[in-house]
Design a binder for these strands. Structure first.
Lengths: 103, 103
DNA sequence: GGGTATAGTTTGTGACACAAACTTAGAAGG
DNA sequence: CCTTCTAAGTTTGTGTCACAAACTATACCC
């Protein structure tokens, strides 16, 4: 009945947190992998996996440089990612507000 | 960091839909199992499982009468369920709104 | 150079959403 | 009455996924 479905990629709590944090960044800004892990309260393994899926969807960019302990990974939301989150927000707002008349 | 966690019982899309529909009912009102299945767009199997979990949590009541094709099952949200949804709504709103200052 | 710390990756497992198959019992109808 | 159909729930099997523990690679310190 509700034509608009909640984007399952964003709906997972962990990824939702990631997207919220990334979208809060000034466009053009980035955040480091470890810092993002702290802020979202995710272990590195989880963060990595979720970022991979978000990157595959084109919602985030992941830039890596260096190797081993010198590696620096920077993450940012893409415009598409921001739009997707906005759309999710709107859809969810609609869903939560809907009294859905029952005949 | 965000102390308030999203209630995972409600967060699943299917159960979220169920709770929204049930909460939209006038307190004291009930909805039939088949009708709830239609409105939430869930198969009977799914609906049953999700209702079971919601009932275990005390978020909904499930009243059964009759057997076989004569069985009538009525479902309603409990006060606790309504409160939980409200809390979920608030938590989510906070999460989605949080710009979360990054040092 | 052995130990410790940091950054990221791989892997194993348990939970869970989902739908297909099954059960039960009344109604249709011949 | 005996079969067939349909409606209402229930059980079960399967694929997906979130999660954390274990692992790899590299630098810093003594």
């Amino acid at each position: 009945m509700p034509v608009d479905e909640l984007d399952p990629l964003i709906h997972a709590v962990a990824r939702l947190r990631i997207m919220v944090v990334l979208s809060a960044l000034t466009p053009g800004d980035e955040i480091s992998f470890p810092r993002l892990g702290e802020v979202t309260d995710l272990t590195a393994g989880n963060l990595l996996t979720h970022l991979r899926r978000l990157a595959e969807a084109g919602y985030v960019t992941v830039e890596k440089s260096g190797q081993g302990s010198m590696s620096r990974t920077l993450v940012a939301a893409t415009d598409e990612g921001r739009r997707a989150l906005e759309h999710y927000r709107a859809t969810l707002g609609r869903l939560l507000a809907t009294p859905e008349p029952s005949p």
